[in-house]
Write a protein that binds this DNA or RNA. Structure first.
Lengths: 148, 148
DNA sequence: CGCTTTTCTTGAATCAGTCAAGTCTTTAAA
DNA sequence: TTTAAAGACTTGACTGATTCAAGAAAAGCG
C-alpha cells in the first residue's frame, strides 16, 4: 500500500520537508486528500470542514495550490471534470476515468517506468511529461447498464 | 496533408454524411475548425462571426456539441485550458501542450496504431480509449526564455 | 406549399475558480 | 519570551466558461 493515510505527525513532517508552514488548514487538506484520493475541490472543502468548521473555500484553494506546487499533491483534471487531487505523487501513474459517472481509478503505466514519453515528432517542443488518461466505463456503471 | 481545408461543398457533404441538417452556422463552424485546429470556443465564435455576423454564442456551443457528438470534430481540453476543437478525427493522434502559453500541437502516437491501450490493472473498468497528453515548452516560449 | 422537427436567438442563471484588501498566525530572531 | 516580518487566512466581490429555458426561425419531408 503506497498511500496509507499518514499520521498527523507524518503530515507535519511532509509539510516541513516541503518548506511550508504548519497550519491547521494545511494539515486538514493534506490528510483529507490522503483519505479520499481523486476527490474534487468541493468534496475536499466539505470534508475539511468536518474537522475545521470555519475554513474558507479560498483557504482550501490556496492550500491545494501550495501543496500541488511543492509536489505534495498532484492535480488532475480530465476533460469535462472539475479539478481533482491525489496524494500519490512522483511515481508516474495514470488514470482511468468512467465516461458515465466520472469515477477515477489509478493505473500503473503499462509499458515501463517512464513510458510513452517518446513522441514521434515533437514539433520542436521540449517534452517533460506524458500524461495518459484511459476512458471507459467503471464496474458499477457497467452493472447498472446491464440491469436497466 | 490529412486536414487540408475542405471546400464549402465538401463541408456540406460531411454534414450530410453525419445526418445533420445543412445550416450556415454549422458550415461556418466546421470550416473554421478546419482552418484553425485547436482553437478554443471563444476564438471559434469570433472567427465564425467574421462570416456570419449575428450568430449567437449559444448556436456555436450547440453546433460544436453536435459536430463533436457525430464525430466530425474532436474536443480536447488539457488541464487548465478551456475546450478546444479540431477536425482531425479518427486517427488516434495525441497532443503536446505548452506549459507556458498553452499552445497545442499534434503528435502521432509513438508506439503503433492503437498504443498505450493496455492498462496493467484496469480495476474492472472497460477501457475504450487511451488519451495521451504530452506537456512541455513550445519552440517560441523556449526562445523567449533564452532571451529574457 | 405547408407541416413537423430541429436549430437558432435571446436573455438569464450557474458554478468553478480568481482577485483584492485587510486580519491573524507562524516562525525566527532579539 | 517578546516581537516583528513574512506568510497564510477570511471576507466578499467578481470573472468567465458553460448551461438552461422558452420562443422564433428555418430545414427538409410529403
Amino acid at each position: 500500500m503506497p498511500s496509507a493515510v499518514p499520521s498527523p505527525g507524518e503530515l507535519e513532517a511532509k509539510l516541513r520537508q516541503a518548506d511550508l508552514r504548519i497550519t491547521r488548514p494545511r494539515l486538514a487538506v493534506l490528510g483529507t486528500v490522503y483519505e479520499h484520493p481523486h476527490a474534487d475541490t468541493h468534496a475536499i472543502i466539505d470534508r475539511v470542514r468536518v474537522q475545521l468548521a470555519d475554513v474558507s473555500h479560498q483557504a482550501v484553494y490556496d492550500v491545494l495550490a501550495a501543496l500541488t506546487e511543492t509536489g505534495l499533491l498532484r492535480r488532475i483534471q480530465p476533460s469535462g471534470s472539475v479539478a481533482r487531487y491525489e496524494a500519490r505523487v512522483g511515481d508516474n501513474h495514470h488514470h482511468v476515468v468512467c465516461r458515465s459517472c466520472g469515477a477515477v481509478a489509478d493505473v500503473d503505466c503499462a509499458v515501463g517506468a517512464a513510458p510513452c514519453l517518446d513522441a514521434s515528432d515533437d514539433h520542436g517542443y521540449v517534452i517533460d511529461e506524458a500524461e495518459v488518461t484511459y476512458w471507459g466505463t467503471c464496474p458499477s456503471c457497467l452493472a447498472n447498464q446491464q440491469h436497466p
